[in-house]
Amino acid sequence: MFLISDTLKKGLSTFDLKVLGIVLMLIDHVHQMFVPFGAPNWLDWFGRPVATLFFFVSVVGFTHTHSKKAYMLRLYISMVLMSLFTFLLSKIVGYEQVQLINNIFRDLFVGTLMMYAIDLFVEGKNTANLKKSFAGILLFILPALLSVFVLSALSNPLILQNPYGVLAITTLLPALLLAENSVMVLLIPLLYLARNNRKIQCLLIALVAAIYFFLGSTQWIMIFAIIPIMLYNGEKGKGMKYFFYVFYPAHIAILYLLSAFLYNR
């Protein structure tokens, strides 16, 4: 009770939101990896607010980073390495009962690309620089354009017969279609546009959750991300810059290998 009261007074830092997201994500991935053993579906519910929390944190991080280009480059490299990592892991282990499609880095990079596009457009508009404004628009719709390209490429028999061609496309391209959370990634630029108004940000999250609710998807549980987001105190908290970049692939590999080992005993 004291802990809850103290949290309400102090609020949650960026570090706290990341830790909360990691804990919920871990529970969600336990469900994913142990579905062949009959892991209950309600474990998946814990993971529904996770993407929203990380989307919000990415907006905060991108807004306050000293180098937005370095921030984007770090996410892009992580996206590529994660894609290669899961591909190689699944090929080596050969555990077909669990499909490794995990790559939150792609979602975050696509969202960051759109945030950068918004900045570019606004800068061009404020300086009457049409080239920058046009570049901003083009960059913003690039993930959608790449999605069209991916659909076209992956429907080509010649490319489908070449596993390395498919791997290159699904690894290197920040296409919205390939994002783990699909069109939900569009929530990132929306949260960025409303970055100076927490209530509007939470309203946007609630609206997206309502859409999922009426579609009959459990993703509506993302609405509970509003609680920690409203408690966010604007402070960075403890340093945790590279921990998530290591923890994310590590915990997926450990859970996947453990599940494969137990299944094949």
Rank of each mutant, 00 (worst) to 15 (best):
I226G: 04
M25A: 00
Y245N: 09
L3V: 12
V80Y: 13
V60I: 12
Y248M: 03
T170N: 02
I188T: 06
L172I: 09
T127S: 10
N41L: 13
L151H: 00
G94P: 00
L145C: 11
P40H: 04
Q32I: 13
G11E: 04
A117K: 05
Q97Y: 13
L12H: 07
V93P: 12
R48T: 10
A194V: 05
L100D: 04
L17S: 01
I188H: 03
N181R: 08
I205P: 07
A168T: 15
Y248F: 12
L81R: 02
M72D: 06
V185W: 10
R48C: 11
L257P: 07
L113Q: 12
T63I: 00
F134Q: 07
T86I: 14
I223H: 05
G237L: 03
T170G: 04
F243T: 12
L12T: 09
K132Y: 15
L26Q: 05
L145A: 15
V183T: 06
F121I: 10
A144N: 05
E235L: 10
A128T: 15
A168C: 09
M1G: 07
I226M: 02
M222Q: 13
I101F: 10
V183A: 06
V150H: 03
L190Q: 02
V60R: 02
F55L: 03
S13E: 11
L138D: 02
S147G: 15
L178S: 01
L160W: 14
N41I: 15
S152H: 04
G11N: 07
Y116G: 00
S67A: 12
N103V: 06
A260F: 07
Y212L: 01
Y71Q: 10
L187R: 01
T14M: 07
K241Q: 06
I254C: 03
L17M: 06
K199N: 11
I226N: 01
D119I: 08
T170K: 09
F2Y: 03
V110T: 03
I227L: 13
L172G: 14
F56I: 11
W42T: 13
P157E: 09
F134S: 09
N102E: 10
F109Y: 14
L154V: 11
P49T: 10
S147H: 07
G38V: 02
C202Q: 02
L190A: 09
L167Q: 00
Y76K: 00
L138E: 08
G239W: 01
V98W: 11
L193G: 15
L26S: 12
I227D: 02
K9M: 07
F140V: 03
F34P: 08
A135P: 04
S78C: 10
